[in-house]
Design a protein around this nucleic acid. Structure first.
Lengths: 245, 245
DNA sequence: GCCTCCTGACGAACGGTGTTCGTTACGAAC
DNA sequence: GTTCGTAACGAACACCGTTCGTCAGGAGGC
């Protein structure tokens, strides 16, 4: 960028680690964290690797395949709980919340899992651990796949919800001058916006929303406590459907 | 396209109903059903209305706003259950499954609801009905918003899963020569693909998946029975968390 | 009746996207 | 030393969302 005395021909470039599938995927994952999922373009990935977009297609079929790999690499950051973390239920809750926070820390990468059943090595590693915990909890063998699928749906959608919240927080922190952009302040802003929507609703057509309006906003959608509450709802539901009908 | 004798100037065009926000949104919704969510471009919407892309921006701020409107219009197709449909639980199950199938019939339109809390009139109509049913089921007032949020997460993610399955079915029906593209055959194909993934897994690193392999595939991921099972799991979980902790 | 003004319509263009093609240049094998 | 397969890449294609400046046609004032 600055070395204007030396021509920046490919020959004068410093080291330039050779391209590889792993390097491409790793660069894309970093970029997802920096600029966001939808802003990760083939051109930007190439630029980060100091090459042109066409060069990426040697290692990756298309953007879809690249993002599928990025998704699995993101899941590599999820540590599996062990016996030291408590009984099966405590471990399952820990695994699920770790998966959610890890995925959400990479923006909307969970979008990859929404139309596809992930089959990458780390996705399978987590699926294995999930089903082992479910079996330990006494879920019927024939129901374990469904239960794991339900938990996966919950993980994916919660990760996307959390990612959207973090993104809002970040953009608000960037534009907000001096006002705190803490979770508190942010929730307050979102709460206010939603509250005005619910507040404008006529009481005769939407009586329940009207009556529950205080609860709708003070509860704080998407807060940590609501997330754990929802997960406990699902696990208890699973326990009451332990056996085949 | 064919009338080559008459110049197709704007002046010679037949009727051309005047543009309007409703007309734009309706055209976009139709297009979503025909070509799929991601293929609905401003240019295609404009073409369907026999105009240019720039003309749309008089009625719609950008593609995001258009799709948000399309989402709510899609929800207009969801009929609310009534007392004739059974008790609160039967009605809630009916409402949720109707929402899922309706959304999924418009491809990936549910993507709109994933980063945003929908606040359109029909979304609010359905939220009102959902919370009323939850209250009828004895869910604590302070928990109703969380419960509704959980159900909404389930609806959205299930709609996207179902939409992906319908899309696969359609493309398979288009390419498949004479082979039946029934749900059975399709499931079979997807099952085979997944089965090979699970089958290649070494038993020592993934013992649970290995042991449960028959259940993982015969169960038929995403089948109707698994969907209703999952919904029942959630509702029973909600019932066991009726009261504030 | 005429003129002005305003607003919906839209052609053209900008900057970006994913992807492909044809050509290089380099390293290994013979 | 020559050949050859292939990674690298510059250029281009067909699109995309969006904006700008122009144009036409109807409403309102004189």
């Amino acid at each position: 960028m600055s070395d204007s005395t030396v021509r920046d021909t490919p020959r004068t470039r410093p080291a330039k680690a050779p391209l590889s599938r792993k390097a491409v995927v790793a660069a894309a994952l970093d970029l997802v964290g920096e600029v966001g999922y939808s802003a990760v373009t083939m051109r930007r990935v190439a630029q980060a690797l100091d090459t042109g977009p066409a060069s990426l297609y040697v290692y990756v079929a298309d953007r879809d395949e690249l993002m599928t790999e990025v998704y699995d690499l993101a899941l590599a950051g999820v540590d599996l709980p062990g016996p030291a973390d408590g009984d099966w239920r405590a471990q399952l809750e820990l695994l699920v919340s770790r998966a959610i926070t890890t995925l959400a820390s990479h923006d909307d990468i969970a979008l990859v899992a929404i139309s596809r059943v992930p089959t990458g090595p780390h996705a399978l590693r987590i699926l294995e651990a999930t089903m082992a915990l479910l079996r330990a909890g006494g879920i019927d063998d024939n129901l374990c796949p469904w239960a794991a699928d339900l938990l996966d749906q919950y993980v994916t959608s919660s990760a996307l919800e959390l990612a959207a919240r973090l993104r809002d927080q970040r953009t608000l922190a960037a534009t907000g001058s001096a006002a705190e952009a803490t979770e508190e302040a942010m929730s307050e802003a979102a709460r206010f916006e939603l509250d005005s929507v619910y507040g404008d609703l006529p009481a005769d057509t939407h009586p329940t929303i009207h009556a529950l309006r205080p609860a709708m906003t003070t509860a704080g959608r998407n807060s940590h406590v609501s997330t754990t509450w929802k997960l406990n709802v699902i696990i208890d539901g699973l326990l009451s459907h332990r056996q085949l009908p």
